[in-house]
Design a protein around this nucleic acid. Structure first.
Lengths: 254, 254
DNA sequence: GAGTGGTCTAGACCACTCA
DNA sequence: GAGTGGTCTAGACCACTCC
């Protein structure tokens, strides 16, 4: 059940959940609806609190949320402002390839090259923090964007005991992460990535339809569950036209 | 002046600043000192509040801060735990190359190839949100790690009126960002990056001491000030041995 | 000085986990 | 049921910006 089933604050349409999330969603809707232009100020926190009949702290939590996503930014003593479009569109999620493609307005596709049991090597065992020879599942896929091959993904998964991945269901859902969440109760929560450039190996080149030795973007990823247990190690290769976008926020110096 | 000049909470050694930052720093010190192992629980929020003589909300703010940095994680109903080492070391800052090198235990170096006035092209004007033919500064550098070339950085900077970059000072500081902050009052705050793989052009290859056509990691970056004004556009090229590390947190699905 | 966001408090209650 | 983190409140005061 949700936090408050009925809404004592009539102004917040979006269904259940914490008040500050509802408020953040409402505000974001207003911004996307074009009620405000870039760098325009929002109403003051105290005013928002009054007009939505919530405490100022709840307003601040909602604004914090939007700020983390790059939707707004606050300046001490001046106000809170709408972030420029360019920033708003680059909030960095732990997105599946499928969702990312949709956000970019493309049509995602995939071709499953391999789906089979595997045993952990020493290296994999170390990355996934399991014993060597633990049972894993290997999943190798070719990813397509608008029908054109753009990437190769080679995953090693550590599933809950007894769980399996059914090829047909994966093909139906299109997204591995959706399948993990919805069918296996595994919730990816954050991941660590390391990127560099490599030369295409012959087999990679053939699948991606590029010349052997041509440059590819290589990305290694360890995905962690909400309890910080590694659940996936994935090696990826992307063609040069595929752009990996990220937003680095906060500043570490004083 | 700081928030509270004298410390009514004797337990928080670190100098001034908000209480919750002092508390976060204190806790982080304890974690790094090895008082806790990975996935070990911290004291409950109410207990921390009592022992540090602060409100529970202040404790929560400190923990939020550490959680964003990947130092700890909280599970509803279970407790707050120390994050695994691998996550702790990958908190993603807007680091200068110089600071990043130090964090990785290497010795950074640079060779200034070009430092000259430039005028904005249409493309640059659009990226930096200025008029075409606005006055910019172009800075092209070869970056070294332990004496070996690892990257090329080609920056176009939009400086405050009248400000200039002095070659000797940049060489002395080693870090462009430090110079911007400390000498010019410009505070980089967040940046948007786009990465892909490219083949090395002859001139790039010569500088980086690799073969022409070999794979390089290409990164384009727009840096924004605290008021979300673009202050820098930078194109970078890195050799394959240079690894770009990032941490993607939060999950966008329900 | 008026208005803004930033910090801090004390207390209440809800939701979740685990024994 | 005891203990944990998650949400919400109402009010106070501080720090900054701009007029």
């Amino acid at each position: 059940m949700e936090h408050k089933s009925s809404d004592k604050h009539g102004l917040l349409l979006p269904g259940g959940g914490p008040l500050y999330r509802q408020l953040a969603a409402t505000l974001q809707h207003q911004l996307e609806g074009g009620h405000y232009g870039a760098n325009e100020p929002l109403p003051a926190e105290r005013d928002l609190a009054a007009s939505f009949r919530v405490s100022r702290d709840t307003v601040r939590k909602a604004i914090r949320l939007l700020e983390e996503q790059g939707v707004v930014y606050s300046d001490h003593g001046r106000g809170t402002f709408v972030a420029p479009e360019s920033v708003r569109q680059m909030s960095r999620f732990l997105d599946s390839f499928t969702d990312d493609a949709h956000r970019r307005g493309g049509v995602p596709g995939q071709q499953i090259l391999l789906l089979e049991p595997a045993v952990a090597t020493m290296a994999l065992a170390s990355l996934l923090q399991t014993e060597p020879d633990a049972a894993l599942v290997r999943l190798r896929r070719l990813r397509l964007l608008n029908g054109v091959p753009v990437g190769l993904q080679d995953s090693y998964l550590r599933l809950p005991p007894g769980a399996t991945i059914v090829r047909r269901e994966l093909e139906a859902k299109g997204s591995l992460y959706r399948l993990l969440i919805e069918d296996l109760g595994v919730r990816p929560c954050e991941c660590l990535e390391s990127l560099c450039a490599v030369a295409a190996q012959p087999d990679e080149a053939a699948l991606l339809k590029v010349a052997a030795g041509s440059p590819l973007l290589a990305c290694e990823r360890v995905t962690l569950s909400d309890r910080r247990q590694p659940i996936e190690y994935c090696e990826m290769r992307y063609v040069p036209s595929y752009r990996y976008k990220t937003r680095v926020n906060k500043w570490s110096l004083g």
